[in-house]
Design a protein around this nucleic acid. Structure first.
Lengths: 218, 218
DNA sequence: TATATTACTTGTCGATTGGCAAGTTAAATG
DNA sequence: CATTTAACTTGCCAATCGACAAGTAATATA
């Protein structure tokens, strides 16, 4: 009896796990398509093919293309909050004068690990439809205010250059991410892999040097 | 006779001008669609509707969607070269130590006047297909080398911050353009028009201050 | 063992896509 | 005035789109 129950439970879990695996594969494939091609240019059939699953499973598991986009965006944003959140927790352990520099370097390295985040923001930031509204309320506005607060604290300490916080946000975001968002172009221009560890580290240093008014320690 | 000839010539020119007007309207509409929605998400029927012309005229005047893209991109790139070229000619008239600052401010203000340029580059810079190849050979590579040369000259004068030219290119381009490319998002976050003259001028100052190591004159 | 549920599969629908071809219209030409 | 040409118009085509519905197969439950 107990044995049968365990087997039944294991089967149930395996079945659930397989369904979760299908959803996970679809979300990863959707994220790739939506961030690089945009929402309208991404076909559900193409997303299913890249995910390696049968046609129709998007509508079965998510109900619609719109719901798939929301699930994929939610997955990306929660991943972002988890990864960047732990970096920001580490930040508070270090010397206050170095915090802005640490923040910027962490942000640049995160953007290199997840270029799909900024690609999606670029795709959806140009026109104001339901997807930009969703992104703004779900994560962009909180993140924007967090960056502005970090900048204001650094400005009080004198570790940030003098400028308006709004311009700082777009200078930081643009300077930090374009080389990764446009990796294909950057690779063709330089001959090097923009997402390789050396380039990422060098870029993080450049952006941090520019956007902090004190020099990095030896 | 001479009068008739003049009338005939005028009629001929009017006919030709109307055809040119149709092509111009289609190119402007195509540029808007391709830069904000991307190539695949832009429909030829939609482009014709926005242009206010009848269905079928894209294939009549350009032959195919691909040829329309090339014509629109060529128009944008020649406009860019003309506008930025005159700014760069003005640059050589001023004090050499102020040239990098003037260059950056001119570039930022141009990007605000023509956000479709950087939007198109972002759309096409993510994946390496025939459109990125076309853009690279037609204009990106020459412009990239021009920026790198301007940076190197400024570095010799000591007016540029110390960094690799490739990183300078992407820091400048990203910092200068994201606030305009993502104007819908930036407007929602700040409540102000990112393309308005005050915001553009403030942004040009911020980027120029950051990317030149000497202060602006009184 | 019979039934129900979950996960997946497949056929089909109406709408939209880019492109072609056979038109029409009007001005230019001889 | 007859003919040609340039500019535009429209009907149609195969392919693809998102979505739905009617399946199948395997597992869970009673």
């Amino acid at each position: 009896m107990q044995n049968n129950e365990k087997i039944a439970l294991a089967n149930c879990e395996r079945k659930l796990r397989d369904a979760q695996a299908t959803k996970r594969k679809l979300i990863n494939s959707a994220l790739l398509a939506f961030s690089t091609q945009g929402y309208d240019a991404s076909s559900t059939r193409g997303i299913e093919t890249v995910a390696g699953v049968k046609r129709g499973l998007i509508n079965y598991h998510f109900g619609s293309k719109k719901a798939l986009w929301k699930a994929a965006a939610e997955h990306l944003m929660s991943t972002t909050e988890r990864d960047l959140g732990s970096a920001l927790a580490d930040m508070k352990q270090i010397d206050e004068e170095q915090q802005l520099r640490f923040f910027i370097r962490s942000y640049v390295k995160f953007c290199a690990r997840h270029p799909e985040l900024n690609r999606l923001m670029i795709q959806e930031g140009m026109a104001h439809d339901w997807r930009l509204t969703w992104l703004l309320e779900r994560s962009v506005r909180p993140w924007y205010e967090q960056v502005c607060r970090a900048f204001s604290r650094a400005a009080e300490l004198g570790t940030a250059p003098k400028m308006d916080a709004h311009h700082f946000y777009y200078v930081l975001t643009g300077a930090a991410t374009l080389i990764f968002s446009n990796a294909a172009e950057a690779a063709a221009l330089s001959g090097k892999d923009p997402l390789g560890p050396e380039t990422v580290d060098a870029h993080a240093d450049v952006v941090a040097d520019l956007l902090t008014s004190i020099r990095k320690p030896l």
